[in-house]
Design a protein around this nucleic acid. Structure first.
Lengths: 245, 245
DNA sequence: GAATAAGTTTCAGTATATTGAAAGATAGAC
DNA sequence: GTCTATCTTTCAATATACTGAAACTTATTC
């Protein structure tokens, strides 16, 4: 995948501004996004011309305008698909007190579509757009199980990476784990994706799209409450499938 | 300007999603952003791979994830330059009851950096990232006057476009208008940029950067209150330059 | 105020992203 | 269950965006 290069670079640029959080000179920006100076200049010029970047007074660098923000706001506000899920997810977050996540299969990974972080100070924290491995995340397991033999074969073609020390890297072991989850109706990861994090997940269909929905939190808290949390999760799934199916 | 093509296309794509507000099929998206299907495919693939787009169930198209939104939020929250201006601008908007705008010179146009829309139903409405002509907008006149002879020459090299029927298109007339504004300390447009809109603006320096700040509203309302509004505008300028200079 | 350093811009050759056309999937119709 | 229309993906030729080096600015130092 080497096409749309400058599009990818533009995203890197915005991500860099987000990470640095301050105006950047061309000569600072170029190495940060690993782009030759002259190419970076062309990219910056394009974004200036389109109103996505503004130049501070000479020699003081550039920063994104609010144009990207208002655009992203408009886009997010019109995502009717996720919007319809929102009330159910909010309730689940409030009832569980933990972070609630919606993910989908993208390529051979889970793509997080929505993350509603719980109210606690110590909580599972992630962002929409993050990718997680199929074999180590709770949603990943749920989607893997729902994805059938074809998906399993794609995944098993390569060795399973060890994300943490607890990650299941043996295919046979993972298969057992998935079958167990399928029997129970929900899937669990205990520190397999992030140390000290336990998550439970299940798959569901909304308007023909297969989603994974999860409750995730620190293992010490999840351990005590896992039965109640599982009840809430499965309850939410039923409600969503019934109302939105 | 023909470089960074795919970056520009990616922006067009996001703008199209914002305008359409619904998932789009590849075959819908490609003509909307005027890109060949195969190129559009490459672009979409890149954005999928980076987590900025998600695919609905097969054949139901794509839509941006919230990743762009959270990123833009982070970036906007860290714009310390505009952030420092915010309290002054908010006060000005509240006191004037009209839309307050901050713009800067970008190329040969005004780039809107911040727009705080007034509370009234009929109000001047615009977005950050918008470009406005130098010769017909109030901020444009303020920046044009501040920009000196060099800027004037660049502008006068081409004929002045007639944005509305009231736009001043005669350079000599415009010069008089600018001189008058420079004497008074503020610049006015009466339906020259948008019919029925009157705006007043002045230039100021904040941390070495020349900005234009404006109050804009429907002419019928601005006509009655222009003296009070001008007082507020110039007051705000003094305060900002004194505190942030 | 001259010299120096730092940042910005330009340009032609070249690597490479883009394209059109055709093959490959997939969902729904019959 | 087969067919058909529609959408998606691939691929090699080509147009073009990218690069490196050098010139040009503009701020800062001495």
């Amino acid at each position: 995948m080497a096409n749309a290069r400058s599009a990818s670079r533009a995203l890197s640029m915005f991500e860099t501004f987000g990470a640095e959080g301050r105006p950047l000179l061309l000569t600072e920006l170029a190495p940060l996004i690993d782009v030759p100076l002259s190419s970076c200049h062309g990219l910056v010029r394009t974004l200036l011309d389109r109103g996505y970047l503004y130049a501070l007074s000479r020699r003081r660098g550039f920063y994104p305008t609010r144009k990207l923000y208002t655009l992203a706001q408009t886009i997010a506000a019109k995502d009717s698909y996720l919007q319809r899920l929102a009330p159910f997810l909010e309730r689940l977050r409030d009832d569980s007190g933990e972070t609630v996540i919606v993910g989908t299969l993208q390529g051979e990974a889970v793509l997080y579509l929505e993350v509603l972080e719980g109210p606690k100070t110590i909580r599972y924290s992630a962002r929409p757009g993050d990718f997680k491995p199929l074999h180590s995340s709770a949603i990943g397991k749920a989607l893997l199980s729902a994805g059938g033999e074809a998906l399993w074969k794609k995944l098993a073609a390569r060795p399973l990476s060890d994300v943490t020390v607890n990650t299941i890297t043996d295919p046979a072991h993972l298969r057992d784990n998935l079958e167990e989850g399928a029997r129970r109706g929900y899937f669990v990861t205990r520190g397999e994706n992030v140390s000290d994090v336990t998550a439970i997940a299940t798959a569901l269909e909304v308007e023909g799209m297969t989603l994974g929905i999860a409750i995730a939190g620190p293992s010490y808290r999840m351990a005590e409450t896992i039965e109640a949390q599982t009840g809430r999760l499965l309850q939410a799934r039923s409600e969503i499938e019934e109302r939105l199916g």
